[in-house]
């Protein structure tokens, strides 16, 4: 089912963080929440998860929602990775055979070495912690996954690996709602983008946001990635719309063709 927020208002102390928010996150799609710090992005996730109660409005969600914290250390409390991964299923008195099967699936999906299972989650590297935190959430087979900046601090390889795992998981019909500052990742992986500004909010498909209406992003004081800025620059110089793509290498090839055309026109002008 979709996640629907109806006229949600949230106050923290005297401050209204979110006001009269009406929004639907479609089932099976990846929606990125973007905006500057302090505009209420995390509050939206907290409302969906039920960690923050709105003062007004109501919300419809599926029952099984997974939440990966930004600071994954806040999520760990078991002495070993194995206990951390299996905690929820064992707490729910799931049959041990199923627990072991799910554990094996996660170890395959995240390419975890068996020796990792006996280590303390607190003693892992930043990238390993993120993978264990996500695997722990996925062990519970949630219908919806809420993620708060899951790739912050990861290197390029680890980031790509994590995002590809999320993409393959989404392709099983699951819903992802992900806060991020990395607009290049939004362009490549997300289906929709929810742009939050000070008192403004817009929900639109990714291609529309980046290529047709980039002012929605820039008005929220977000910096477009260089590849998108260059796309618009070349399109303007050539005075024609260019083909669009959310695939990085295809988009680069489209821009490169545009640049070559502009270069040859410049030579003729001379």
């Amino acid at each position: 089912m979709n996640i629907a927020l109806h006229d949600i208002t949230v106050r923290k102390g005297q401050t209204t963080v979110v006001e009269n928010l009406c929004l639907t996150f479609p089932q099976g799609e990846w929606t990125a929440i973007v905006g500057k710090n302090g505009v209420g992005k995390s509050t939206v996730l907290e409302v969906i998860k039920g960690l923050t109660t709105p003062v007004m409005g109501h919300i419809e969600t599926p029952p099984n929602i997974g939440y990966m914290f930004q600071q994954v250390d806040q999520q760990f409390f078991e002495p070993t990775v194995e206990k951390e991964l299996t905690f929820t299923l064992r707490y729910l008195k799931t049959k041990e055979a199923i627990v072991q099967q799910r554990l094996q699936e996660m170890m395959n999906l995240f390419q975890l070495e068996p020796s990792l299972l006996e280590q303390s989650p607190y003693h892992l590297s930043g990238g390993q912690k993120k993978r264990i935190a996500l695997a722990t959430v996925l062990m519970g087979e949630p219908d919806v996954l809420l993620l708060d900046e899951p790739t912050a601090g990861l290197d390029a390889t680890q980031k790509e690996q994590l995002l590809n795992i999320l993409k393959s998981w989404q392709q099983q019909g699951k819903t992802i709602i992900c806060i991020t500052h990395e607009l290049e990742d939004v362009l490549q992986y997300a289906d929709n983008v929810f742009v939050m500004g000070n008192g403004t909010a817009q929900f639109l498909p990714v291609e529309e946001a980046f290529f047709m209406r980039p002012t929605v992003l820039t008005d929220a004081q977000l910096l477009l990635p260089p590849v998108v800025r260059c796309f618009h620059d070349i399109s303007k110089r050539l005075e024609k719309p260019l083909q669009t793509s959310t695939k990085p290498q295809q988009l680069l090839a489209i821009i490169a063709e545009g640049v070559k055309e502009y270069g040859s026109r410049a030579t003729i002008r001379e």
């Binding site: 680069l252 821009i255 490169a256």
Partner: peptide, 14 residues
């Protein structure tokens, strides 16, 4: 490598 600043990726593609 594709781990490059966008400008160098673009120059290489061109």
């Amino acid at each position: 490598t594709t781990a490059l600043p966008f400008s160098l990726q673009l120059q290489r593609a061109c």
